[in-house]
């Protein structure tokens, strides 16, 4: 295992020359091309780009849900590209918290049980995981909804359950793919406030979004087009993001 992107320098994630190709019959679709990226601890990174630009593919690779066709990937100085399934599952369980656009909760389980699931895979005892899940749900404002199933919760509440679940094992990075995509604006605002608060508490957050107001919550904006990073810049305000979006989509404001 090679060591690069040492955690001591504050660098958490590092991608070098990462490409991802998909084969669709005889066609080869390039989703990502020669991506070089480094993310430092406690950063809030927003990833934007038009549809098909490779945002979600990049997030999937960052989160260990997908493997690059070529290139290398280090997490806290450890290369995780070639890890066997069991090790990779452990990395996903301990280092990453995932928040999806469609929440991805288990519909058969209550909010409390949903939050407990990653802790089961981490081997946390029943009593401890119940205690931690309760605390987490209280932290996201769902202390009164512990025993409700997803179908009995609003979209915003479901997403907060998903965030509580993502935090269950104290992850290194929180990865969110369009976390507000299915939510009305007031609930979307609450979710983003929650993510921002977590980031201020020291959590590294990487968000993929179409929404400039969501992206503006971050400190750094990575813009993708046709599978390539076309810009990687600090965010100073929502107008910067909106301008970058317009530029990516070829629209003049």
């Amino acid at each position: 295992m090679s060591v690069e992107g040492d955690g001591r320098t504050g660098e958490l994630l590092r991608l070098v020359g990462v490409s991802r190709l998909f084969h669709a019959g005889s066609h080869v679709v390039t989703a990502l091309q020669e991506i070089h990226l480094s993310v430092r601890q406690t950063e809030f990174v927003s990833i934007m780009g038009p549809s098909g630009s490779g945002k979600s593919t990049l997030l999937n690779i960052l989160g260990g849900l997908d493997a690059p066709t070529s290139g290398k990937y280090w997490l806290q100085g450890r290369e995780i590209g070639g890890l066997p399934d069991r090790e990779l599952a452990r990395v996903r369980n301990r280092h990453f918290g995932y928040v999806f656009q469609n929440y991805n909760l288990f519909p058969e389980l209550t909010a409390l049980e949903n939050v407990e699931v990653p802790m089961i895979y981490a081997g946390v005892g029943r009593r401890e995981r119940r205690r931690r899940a309760t605390v987490l749900l209280e932290q996201v404002g769902l202390g009164a909804r512990l025993h409700h199933r997803p179908a009995e919760l609003s979209g915003g509440e479901q997403q907060r359950v998903a965030i509580a679940r993502a935090l269950a094992n104290g992850p290194t990075v929180l990865l969110a793919d369009e976390p507000t995509g299915n939510l009305p604006s007031n609930q979307a605002r609450q979710i983003m406030e929650l993510l921002t608060r977590l980031n201020r508490q020291g959590m590294t957050v990487i968000v993929v979004t179409h929404d400039p107001s969501v992206a503006a919550c971050g400190q750094r904006l990575i813009s993708l087009r046709d599978g390539r990073i076309v810009a990687d810049e600090a965010i100073t305000g929502t107008s910067d993001v909106a301008a970058r979006v317009a530029q990516l989509e070829g629209v003049s404001l």
């Binding site: 301990r94 995932y98 699931v117 895979y121 981490a122 679940r165």
Partner: peptide, 16 residues
Amino acid sequence: RRAIGLARVLGASQRR
């Protein structure tokens, strides 16, 4: 299938 995928995302290995 989706629940299995989700379980794997949350840390379950294929073996498990």
